[in-house]
């Protein structure tokens, strides 16, 4: 009775999730343009899988699935996962990753809002450590360099039904190739020369990152997310990259190369900003973001994986409660200087 008369600004979880999903579209289209229809096949796999899995667990938990599915969070998780996966990953791995994300990482903790780790990233990391080869085989950026992969070829590879196999089509990502080159003792320039060149970073990837940046700006302008996390993720990565690039430009790529490579824009605007698993205080969000940016650089440069948004986010998820504890804002009247 009370709540009926209380004015509300009519924000809702559903609306926020819908906005994030909408803001993902530029990035998804860029992925689809550059890596072909495989991306859309993944979307077609993950979304229904996620919804069915969520509904099933909700039923088991004795909840009304309609009430909770319509918050759209499962679809968002699924899309984030789909956007992170290599475009020609076998269908069952995609399915497995989605199930892990929704069931293990989200519902088993109690559903929306209860999970300490980002569900999409848990799904991604489980696949990455279980199937490292498949998870690091990316298509060359066909969209801008040649003929895009056909729907038939893509589905043949993904579902394993035709002669086209993944080996003939895929290779490492530019970040991965760069790392291999550097490990082989080549300088940065030599490594980059061996790789197909993009405008600013790896071919195609720069466009994907720019597209996700556009989506991220939509989120900022609609005030769906605050500036704290994305800016500090990108700032943390940029500054760390700048320092090492200035120390030794032959071994360390430029900050701009880092900012437009891999999944950093997707991570900074869409994954790290997941409010459930991020820090929640204003200062805490900055530390949280900087932590992701710096960790990403460290793992990219010296770690065993070419890109590390997922690991950095998950590691910082672990620290979020601690960060929140130490970054509580000064409350009204709590400032010692203001005391008489």
């Amino acid at each position: 009775m009370v709540s009926k008369m209380v004015p509300h600004n009519s924000s809702s979880t559903t609306k926020e999730m819908a906005t994030v999903i909408f803001a993902m579209l530029p990035g998804l289209f860029a992925l689809g343009w550059i890596f072909g229809p495989g991306v859309w096949i993944h979307v077609a796999i993950v979304v229904p899988t996620a919804m069915v899995a969520e509904a099933a667990i909700l039923l088991i938990r004795g909840r009304n699935p309609i009430n909770e599915l319509n918050d759209l969070s499962a679809i968002l998780t699924a899309l984030l996962l789909a956007a992170s996966l290599p475009p020609l990953l076998p269908w069952w791995m995609t399915l497995l990753g989605t199930l892990f994300a929704i069931i293990l990482a989200k519902q088993l903790y109690g559903g929306l809002g209860q999970n300490p780790f980002n569900p999409a990233m848990i799904g991604y990391v489980i696949l990455l450590v279980s199937f490292p080869l498949e998870m690091t085989s990316w298509l060359p950026a066909a969209g801008i360099q040649g003929e895009p992969l056909s729907w038939t070829a893509a589905s043949q590879v993904i579902f394993g039904t035709g002669p086209t196999t993944v080996d003939t089509l895929t290779g490492a990502t530019p970040l991965g190739g760069l790392k291999t080159g550097l490990i082989q003792g080549l300088t940065l320039q030599e490594s980059l020369l061996k790789l197909p060149n993009g405008l600013l970073a790896g071919p195609g990837w720069e466009w994907i990152n720019i597209a996700f940046l556009v989506g991220g700006l939509i989120l900022l302008f609609t005030r769906t997310i605050s500036w704290h996390i994305p800016l500090s993720v990108l700032g943390g990565l940029f500054l760390t990259a700048l320092i090492f690039n200035l120390i030794d430009p032959n071994s360390y790529a430029t900050p701009l190369y880092h900012l437009l490579s891999g999944g950093i824009m997707l991570g900074a605007f869409f994954i790290a900003t997941d409010p459930v698993t991020a820090s929640t205080t204003p200062m805490g969000r900055i530390w949280f973001g900087v932590g992701i940016g710096v960790l990403d650089y460290i793992i990219r440069t010296w770690g065993g994986y070419p890109d590390a948004v997922a690991f950095s986010v998950l590691l910082m998820n672990m620290f979020a409660p601690l960060i929140d504890h130490f970054t509580q804002p000064t409350i009204y009247g709590g400032n010692r200087e203001a005391r008489p």
């Binding site: 009926k4 809702s12 918050d71 809002g113 929640t280 929140d324």
Partner: peptide, 29 residues
Amino acid sequence: PPVKTAPIRNCIRCAACSDACPANLLPQQ
């Protein structure tokens, strides 16, 4: 008769409340 209002959902720690709090508390926490 009580109209069907938006259901109460779980807190997602979005911090909209702490942005609005005039006492600068952390309502979500």
